[in-house]
């Protein structure tokens, strides 16, 4: 059994590593083939005034003249030493550019994530409680409508109303330049987090609602009811416990979606996170930075996808039961 488990996690780890390797090659090649001159992003205006010889020298210095696979191997070697090169645009080590921004993204994404799932759970329970009755139907209608609103447009409308017309909330940035404490930070977070939650809430609340509705049709609910347990008690102590694995795997799957969401939201609110950074680096052909951001995003996405698989396959007791049956069958045949 233990050997089985080691093999299982080993396999997942292998898939994880291969995925990241393939991802890094793909991004490396695509970003090198893409048109646009990285010299412009490195030297800015000066690049246009350089003579062809100077340009050649500059390319040589930045290692842009080699064949792409040679560049990739060089990059990989350096990456293992923890050196991901310098950002062409910021003239700084890539990691230090990212580390300056990543906390902002984590704050935005983290707060959004926690609030999102707390609200989704509450809303899911609320809808399941009132299944197919008026409150449920109203929430379902509103929910479907909100899930259709593109997040960038929602962000624009909120900026228009709260920042431009009512002038009560800031429209961009993560803090007021020059001053501001925690209150100021929170003020800047309200609109982005709202957009993040409204955009994703219904999708997850609806999943939780449907999962709960499946659960309340199980026979053990009848049994609990015959025992005289109240509706609330059955729902909260029995059904909720049973949907926990689905809830956890839902949370794991949601991480990539929410991450993609924060990238767009950051761009609209000019919020200084890694989303805006990724957008800028793709636009200005800042290869080294783009590579690291893509791979970072990829690692997070792949990690959470595999985590969701593991939760589904391992934590769900029914899976375990099946596995026990299978291994039991093995010993019989062996």
């Amino acid at each position: 059994m233990r050997k089985n488990r080691a093999a299982y996690y080993g396999k997942k780890l292998l898939i994880f590593l291969i995925s990241i390797f393939v991802l890094s090659i793909a991004v490396f090649y695509i970003s090198r083939i893409a048109p646009g001159d990285p010299l412009v992003s490195y030297y800015g205006e000066r690049a246009e005034k350089m003579t062809p010889e100077e340009k050649d020298l500059a390319r040589e210095k930045l290692g842009l003249n080699d064949a792409i696979y040679v560049q990739y191997i060089k990059w990989l070697k350096e990456a293992f030493k923890g050196n991901f090169g310098i950002s062409f645009k910021y003239k700084q080590d890539v990691l230090s550019v990212i580390s300056g921004r990543i906390t902002n993204t984590l704050i935005l994404g983290g707060i959004g994530f926690i609030l999102l799932f707390a609200l989704a759970l509450l809303l899911g329970i609320f809808c399941a409680w009132h299944e197919d009755r008026l409150p449920d139907r109203i929430v379902c209608q509103i929910g479907t409508a909100t899930s259709c609103i593109p997040e960038f447009w929602l962000a624009l409308v909120l900026i228009l109303v709260f920042a431009m017309m009512l002038r009560i909330l800031p429209s961009s940035g993560a803090y007021t330049i020059g001053g501001g404490g925690i209150a100021d930070r929170i003020e800047h977070l309200i609109l982005p987090v709202t957009v993040l939650i409204i955009n994703h809430l219904w999708y997850y609340a609806y999943m939780i609602r449907n999962r709960l509705l499946e659960e309340v049709r199980e026979n053990y609910v009848l049994l609990a009811k015959t025992k005289g347990l109240s509706k609330g008690k059955i729902l909260f102590t029995h059904c909720l416990r049973n949907i926990l694995p689905s809830f956890l795997s839902l949370m794991a799957i949601s991480v990539p979606h929410i991450m993609g969401g924060t990238y767009v939201i950051e761009t609209v609110f000019s919020y200084p996170g890694i989303g805006t950074l990724a957008y800028e680096s793709a636009r200005y052909h800042d290869y080294n930075l783009l590579m690291v951001l893509c791979i970072f995003t990829g690692i997070v996405v792949i990690f959470f996808n595999i985590l969701a698989q593991i939760i589904n396959e391992r934590i769900d007791p029914r899976m375990k039961a099946e596995e026990a049956l299978e291994s039991g069958g093995d010993t019989v045949s062996g």
Partner: peptide
């Protein structure tokens, strides 16, 4: 799976 794991917007 690998294809799915790359953020599509990127």
């Amino acid at each position: 799976d690998i294809f799915l794991s790359i953020p599509s917007l990127l």
